[in-house]
Write a protein that binds this DNA or RNA. Structure first.
Lengths: 159, 159
DNA sequence: CACTTTCTTGAGTAATCGTTCAAGAATAAT
DNA sequence: ATTATTCTTGAACGATTACTCAAGAAAGTG
C-alpha cells in the first residue's frame, strides 16, 4: 500500500474510497491481470494461428522485461491465505487453462497437431509447463530463452 | 512467528536467542528443507535406480498430504525481497538441479535413457516441470495424480 | 554441594500495518 | 452562480509486527 500511495501520489483515504479494502484492490488487480493476459493471447492467435500463438506466448515470456516474471495468479495461489482472493486466483487460472484448451482444439482442427491428443490434457500440462517456466525465470542463474525454446519446441512434437 | 511461538510453546526471546533473527530462522529452515529433500531423493535412488527415483519422486508429490504442496524454495524465490534469503533459495534450487542432473547422467550410463540427451538440459527442464507440477497441486480443481503421471511417463520417452 | 553456563521468561519497545472519517477541494449539474 | 456530487486530504485509530533485555529457572560441572 505504501508503494502504491507513493507512485499514485494519493493518500490512503482515496484508495480506500475507490477500492474498499486492500483485498478489494488486490482482487481488482488480479482480474485485470487475467484479462490483459487473455487479451494478449488472443492477439497472438490472430497473428500466428493457434499453435503459433502458444509458441510465441512461451517465447515472449523469456524476453519479458517485467520486474516480476512469475505469474501473479500463481504467486497469489501459492501465498494467499484460504479465502476469496485465493479462490479468485484459482478461478482465473482455470479460465486461462480453458483458453489454452481451445487453442489446442483449434490447432487440432487446423491439422497443426495430431488428432489423438486430448486438448484438455494438453492444456493442463502446458499450463503447468508455463508455470514452471515462469517460476524458473526468477532464477538469475538459468538460461531463460533456452528453457522457453525447449517448451515451445515441445509443442511441435505433437504433430 | 506467532504460529511458531504457539506450537513450540516458547516466548519470542527464546527463539531470537536461538536463531538471531526472523531471517536467520528462515534461512535455517530453508537449508534443512533442501537437505531433507535431497536425502529423500537419494533414498529413492537406492530403491528404484536413477530413472525410477525421478519417476517415484514425481509421483510421490501428487500423494503428499503436506499442507503446502508447492516447493518452499520456489515460494521463497518468488516472494522474498532481493537479498540473502532469496539468494539462498536460488542456490538451493541450483543444487537440487545438479542432483537431478547426476540422476539423469546415471540413468544414461545405465542405458535407461538414450545417450544423445544432455543431462544438464534434462535436469533444467525436469526441475521446471516439477516446479509447475507442485504449483499446480495447490489448485483444488486439478487432478494431481494425472498431471504427475504425465510427467513421470514423459521420462520414459527418453529411452 | 556450590557454582558456572545455558535456556527461558515477562514485560516491554518502536515501527509498521490496514483502515476510518470529518472536513476541504475539485468537478458536474441546474 | 448556486447547488449537488464526487474526489481528496490530514490526522488520526487500534492492532500487529520484529525485536530486546534484565531477571529468573534449569541443566551441567567439579
Amino acid at each position: 500500500m505504501k508503494d502504491l500511495e507513493q507512485v499514485l501520489d494519493l493518500r490512503p483515504g482515496s484508495i480506500y474510497a475507490a477500492f474498499g479494502s486492500k483485498d478489494g484492490l488486490f482482487a481488482s488487480a488480479l482480474d485485470r491481470y487475467a484479462e490483459t493476459g487473455a487479451a494478449r493471447l488472443a492477439e497472438l492467435r490472430d497473428q500466428h494461428g493457434p499453435l503459433g500463438a502458444l509458441k510465441a506466448h512461451a517465447m515472449a515470456l523469456a524476453d519479458d522485461p517485467a520486474p516480476a516474471r512469475a505469474c501473479m495468479l500463481v504467486k497469489t495461489l501459492l501465498e494467499a491465505p484460504e479465502g476469496p482472493v485465493r479462490d479468485a486466483a484459482a478461478a482465473n487460472l482455470r479460465s486461462m487453462e480453458t483458453v489454452f484448451a481451445s487453442l489446442f482444439r483449434e490447432a487440432q482442427a487446423a491439422g497443426e497437431i495430431a488428432a489423438h491428443h486430448d486438448p484438455d490434457r494438453l492444456a493442463r500440462r502446458h499450463q503447468s509447463d508455463i508455470t514452471g517456466l515462469r517460476a524458473t525465470l526468477e532464477r538469475p542463474d538459468v538460461d531463460a530463452t533456452a528453457l522457453a525454446t525447449e517448451i515451445a519446441d515441445g509443442l511441435d512434437t505433437l504433430r
